[in-house]
Deep mutational scan, measured.
Amino acid sequence: MQRVNMIMAESPGLITICLLGYLLSAECTVFLDHENANKILNRPKRYNSGKLEEFVQGNLERECMEEKCSFEEAREVFENTERTTEFWKQYVDGDQCESNPCLNGGSCKDDINSYECWCPFGFEGKNCELDVTCNIKNGRCEQFCKNSADNKVVCSCTEGYRLAENQKSCEPAVPFPCGRVSVSQTSKLTRAETVFPDVDYVNSTEAETILDNITQSTQSFNDFTRVVGGEDAKPGQFPWQVVLNGKVDAFCGGSIVNEKWIVTAAHCVETGVKITVVAGEHNIEETEHTEQKRNVIRIIPHHNYNAAINKYNHDIALLELDEPLVLNSYVTPICIADKEYTNIFLKFGSGYVSGWGRVFHKGRSALVLQYLRVPLVDRATCLRSTKFTIYNNMFCAGFHEGGRDSCQGDSGGPHVTEVEGTSFLTGIISWGEECAMKGKYGIYTKVSRYVNWIKEKTKLT
């Protein structure tokens, strides 16, 4: 034993070699072989497995989906700052455009905790909710729209109204504003409101030439003092309507412009014939205590009207009353817009006519005020429907199939267009061939041609 100890002390290297040989010859039971080890760690190889990531292109799944990435790591994937920024906006807080917040056709661009709407022409605001041009839906104005110097929408209202708090709607500024039905039992019968379409306001006024200088022999019209197929109006439903009495009662109609003036057809009036105007009328054979009678003290036909040349060209006249009318729910003026808007309103496509005229061709006159909704007829169809001249200051309205029309005794009465609950004068009943005849239409004086003249002559002093 002493000898062994001496050998170990003198030859430590020998001992180490012996131990190493023993270990190498022993069977290893701690580690699995290569094949079995792979069965336990069965993990798919990654895209760049075996390579240094710093030297390969980034992978979106590896960089940002398996674990949260930084902007720089995302930049490695896209290799483009702009594309990385677009991805980053949604990656950080989701897609803010998912709810489609942009209105009126706006395009949404996502941002971090926010979004941006790219608005089409005519709109602005956070969600493109603000109209900035009158060309689109009248700028959301209830009545009139004008573009300011910086191309912003400025709404306005006709006389007797003021802008509401929203700067879009119009509200009454006087007790009985024009064009409004205020009798409670008839307010439910107000005709369907007309909503502004998209309009090209630059070209809204037709490029028409008034044929002022045409000389033409007097034409022989049949029954051209021209509501057939209409309905009984309720008291106060058309408070701007008046009836004219002269040699015979209810020979023509008219509309209240203001307390002192009536507008009617020029062919209705004769110099030297006494005319009485009755406002607030409903049943011409009954006294309903809503009527107001006034005498006409002055007749002003349009300066281009000449019955000797043509009885229905420039067929418009103004009547001055001896005493002002007292405005109330049964006696209310009709609204008159400017030339541009009167023309736009007419193009809405349908209007209402009213009167006490004959209820059928050569038949009896109506006792109760009649009204009828009539569609506008395109000019080409209008011209083809008659052998008589249709001037540019006239328009056609009615039904091709016949059966409904204005008729004798309705002449001078109103053709009105309702705009968001307020009625505007767009025409004056003038003439036609018979009444409600198939293929024939009622012919009306186009008020847009005469609004400046009306307003100039009827100013209240």
Rank of each mutant, 00 (worst) to 15 (best):
N310V: 03
F78E: 03
V359F: 11
F55W: 08
C69N: 00
S406I: 11
Q143P: 00
V278E: 03
D111G: 11
K146Q: 13
V227L: 12
W240M: 01
C155T: 00
N59P: 00
A337M: 02
N38A: 12
I7D: 06
G439M: 05
N306E: 06
K51M: 07
K45N: 00
V243I: 12
D110M: 10
W356C: 04
E129C: 03
E193H: 12
L321T: 03
A164M: 13
R140G: 09
I300G: 01
P235N: 05
V374S: 04
G125A: 03
N304L: 15
E288Y: 05
M437G: 11
Q408D: 15
D200L: 10
S217F: 11
V451W: 03
C407V: 05
E259V: 07
Y352V: 07
V377R: 05
E165Y: 09
R226M: 12
R83Y: 10
K137I: 06
T290L: 06
F121N: 08
D405L: 15
K362T: 09
E72H: 05
I112F: 14
E61F: 03
Y22D: 02
V92P: 07
W240A: 01
N310H: 13
E193Y: 15
T215W: 05
L14Q: 04
N295Q: 13
N138F: 05
E286Q: 13
A307E: 07
K459C: 11
G363A: 07
G13A: 10
H34K: 12
H400G: 14
D95A: 11
D33H: 10
H302E: 02
K39C: 04
L346R: 04
S365K: 15
T16R: 11
N38P: 05
C252N: 01
E76D: 03
L327S: 04
A266G: 05
K39A: 12
A380P: 09
W453L: 00
W261D: 00
G432T: 13
T158L: 09
T16G: 14
T386L: 08
T422F: 03
F399C: 06
L319N: 01
G432E: 09
S430Y: 03
S365H: 13
Y444A: 03
L327V: 07
I15D: 02
V359N: 12
E35D: 14
P101K: 05
P12V: 13
P414L: 15
W453C: 00
H415W: 03
S406D: 15
D405S: 15
F176M: 05
E124Y: 11
I275A: 04
N222K: 11
K387M: 07
P235F: 07
L318F: 00
K68W: 03
P175M: 10
H282F: 09
I297G: 04
L163S: 03
V326I: 11
A317W: 00
T81W: 08
N222I: 08
L321S: 01
L369T: 14
A337G: 06
N38M: 09
S204P: 10
V353C: 03
V451N: 03
S99E: 12
E434P: 15
C97A: 03
I300S: 03
D198E: 14
I428V: 09
N127K: 10
I299P: 03
C382Q: 02
K438Q: 15
I284G: 09
E98N: 13
P324Y: 04
V296F: 01
H303L: 05
K260A: 04
I300E: 05
I17M: 12
R83F: 07
D249P: 09
L189W: 11
K137A: 08
R46C: 00
D232L: 10
S350P: 10
Q57Y: 00
F424E: 01
I210C: 09
Q143G: 01
A233H: 06
A9D: 07
R83P: 06
A279C: 04
E86L: 12
F399N: 10
T381L: 09
E159F: 07
Y391M: 15
C108H: 02
R294E: 01
C178F: 01
G94A: 12
G254K: 00
W88M: 08
V154A: 13
R298F: 03
E76W: 00
S423H: 15
E418Q: 12
T218W: 11
D232H: 12
V263E: 00
G125V: 02
D198L: 07
L60E: 02
W88P: 02
A279T: 04
Q241L: 15
G58A: 11
N304G: 10
V278M: 07
E98I: 11
A164P: 02
L211V: 13
S11M: 13
I210F: 09
T215F: 06
V248A: 08
Q408T: 15
V30S: 12
C435L: 03
G355N: 08
N166W: 02
A307W: 07
D223G: 09
A164E: 06
C407A: 04
P120C: 04
H314W: 07
Q408M: 12
N166Y: 02
P239R: 00
T84D: 02
E54M: 01
R449V: 15
E281L: 14
V353N: 02
E72S: 06
S169A: 13
S99A: 11
G229Q: 15
N343W: 03
